[in-house]
């Protein structure tokens, strides 16, 4: 192979950097979604590569469901601080209080409620573009995504009428109220993400590595035992998400493969305690990454329906 040849990670990296710089150049008020998860960790390194020695020319935004793994939040805050970036946090709780969102009766997961909270934040800060770490290989509705994904003034995705996206010429033009979602790592697979984390020696939250945790079995998955409810003056935020008497709690050696929040993330039993181990595990995996997420299991079109409504 000639020395003027990029390997697959080099190709994916240059494609993503190009996309990020297009955002910085073409939008007035872009924002980058950063949860502290592995995909958005890669986004941050790509942003450093795209913009250094300048500052990353956009703030970070995270929408909390209120059920986050504490390890993830502290990692998120630390990383934003290290990079000197402004981190904006908005919560599903706020959206509920402001009446932007209403919980469906009987539903415990707040995954769907992230959508109105996200749209509320976009409105509040007048963001015209939000960069996210979604990938086409995650799910089949996402497999149809463009790099620049147009959303109308209701934040909706119209999959039957997407803008053609040709060469590397992205059309970022918007009318007032409309906005763009941009996915620089669209073409990355789960394996690419871990190989990039290894190559760039990126830190990740400890919950990706094997650890002991109390879990209980529900819906064919090992769910983490939520933190205990101490403040009796407040309603239990994990009501409904605690083990029932017929769901015995077991101490297991587990890790997360993909992170939603504590209610929707299945833990996988694993002894992988290094990035190399994880790469080995991903290579040998016989189920997809999203196989451990309750939010995607609802129906064959679960993701498509949420995306049409404005979900990431």
């Amino acid at each position: 192979m000639s020395s003027y040849h990029l390997d697959h990670l080099g190709y994916l990296e240059t494609e993503a950097i190009h996309v990020m710089r297009e955002v910085a150049a073409e939008f007035e008020r872009p924002v980058m979604l950063f949860s502290g998860g592995k995909d958005s960790i890669c986004l941050l390194r790509l942003a450093e590569k795209a913009f250094r020695p300048s500052d990353i020319p956009m703030p970070f935004l995270n929408i909390e469901t209120g059920h986050e793994f504490p390890e993830l939040l502290s990692f998120r805050d630390r990383r934003a601080k290290e990079l000197g970036a402004k981190l904006i946090v908005r919560t599903v709780d706020d959206a509920l209080k402001k009446g932007l969102a209403t919980q469906a009766p009987g539903e415990i997961s707040r995954n769907k409620l992230q959508t109105p909270a996200l749209l509320g934040a976009i409105e509040e800060f007048q963001f015209d573009c939000a960069i996210g770490g979604a990938r086409r290989d995650e799910e089949k509705a996402r497999a149809k995504e463009r790099f620049f994904s147009f959303r109308d003034s209701f934040g909706q995705w119209d999959p039957k009428n997407q803008r053609p996206e040709i060469w590397n010429l992205y059309n970022g033009r918007l009318n007032p109220g409309e906005n763009m979602r941009v996915y620089p790592i669209n073409n990355w697979t789960e394996m690419d993400v871990w190989e990039y984390i290894k190559r760039e020696q990126l830190a990740v939250p400890t919950i990706y590595f094997s650890h002991e945790r109390e879990c209980f079995r529900r819906g064919g998955q090992w769910l983490p035992l939520p933190p205990s409810h101490t403040d009796a003056s407040q309603p239990d935020p994990y009501a409904g998400a605690r083990p029932k008497p017929n769901e015995p709690v077991k101490k297991l050696v587990v890790r997360v493969r993909t992170i939603a929040d504590m209610i929707s993330t299945g833990m996988i039993e694993s002894r992988a305690d290094s990035v190399d181990d994880i790469i080995g595990e991903v290579a040998a995996a016989r189920v997809t990454e999203r196989g451990s997420r309750a939010d995607d299991k609802a129906s064959e079109a679960a993701m498509e329906d949420r995306k049409k409504a404005g979900y990431f």
């Binding site: 086409r136 290989d137 497999a143 149809k144 697979t189």
Partner: peptide
């Protein structure tokens, strides 16, 4: 098939 679907394999 209405729109392009991207798939990844190795």
């Amino acid at each position: 098939t209405i729109d392009v679907a991207y798939r990844f394999f190795a």
